[in-house]
């Protein structure tokens, strides 16, 4: 399950960044991947649709959100947590 969440999140981020999934590293940040604020809200939307979850994220206060977007790894961990909490 964990690996499938990871692969699906990486696929979503790769599509947004116009990269191959293999080029999206766990330590990559949205900034290094070239994903801007609109790309971020599109990615979150794709994650919500893909996993049928609700992601709590307000673009005005990204630091206050429980959804940590500081790296690909943190996003995957946050999605795993949300999937467990909302679907478990």
């Amino acid at each position: 399950m964990a690996e499938s969440v990871r692969d699906r999140v990486i696929a979503i981020i790769a599509e947004q960044a116009v990269l191959e999934p293999g080029d999206v590293k766990m330590e990559s940040t949205l900034e290094t991947l070239g994903i801007d604020s609109l790309g971020l809200v599109e990615s979150i939307f794709a994650i919500e649709e893909s996993f049928d979850i609700t992601v709590p994220f307000n673009a005005n206060e990204p630091d206050k959100s429980a959804f940590d977007i500081s790296s690909v790894a943190s996003i995957i961990a946050a999605v795993e947590g949300l999937v467990q909490a909302q679907k478990g």
């Binding site: 979150i44 307000n58 005005n60």
Partner: peptide
């Protein structure tokens, strides 16, 4: 409903 729903998507609403 549709007017607010569209804005929700941008995640800029308080």
């Amino acid at each position: 409903f549709g007017g607010i729903k569209a804005w929700e998507g941008l995640r800029v609403m308080s």
